[in-house]
């Protein structure tokens, strides 16, 4: 137990080291997760767009001005 305690104290520098690694860990975690979340959001958006486009193409062409 005491060895663990000395490890966490880091010879008096524990605060600085754990602050750095804590913030670093959080940032790395956020960076690692964010593209997956972004992907979900993008897929949702794009699918919505596709549904809209499909609906638009279902309308007769003389009404629908876009291609």
């Amino acid at each position: 137990m005491s060895t663990l305690q000395t490890f966490f104290e880091m010879g008096g520098h524990g605060l600085y080291i754990w602050l750095c690694y804590g913030v670093g860990g959080i940032i790395f975690l956020l960076l690692g997760v964010s593209p997956m979340l972004a992907r979900r959001r993008v897929i949702k958006q794009v699918k919505q767009l596709h549904r809209r486009l499909a609906l638009a193409s279902a309308i007769p062409s003389d009404v629908n001005e876009k291609e």
Partner: peptide, 24 residues
């Protein structure tokens, strides 16, 4: 991360292309 980010950008920008439609 860059690979994933670029993939997301591609999906967004190529959203109207047929291959994206098929893929999704």
């Amino acid at each position: 991360l860059v690979f994933q980010g670029v993939r997301n950008e591609i999906l967004q920008r190529e959203a109207r292309k047929s291959w994206v439609k098929k893929l999704l």
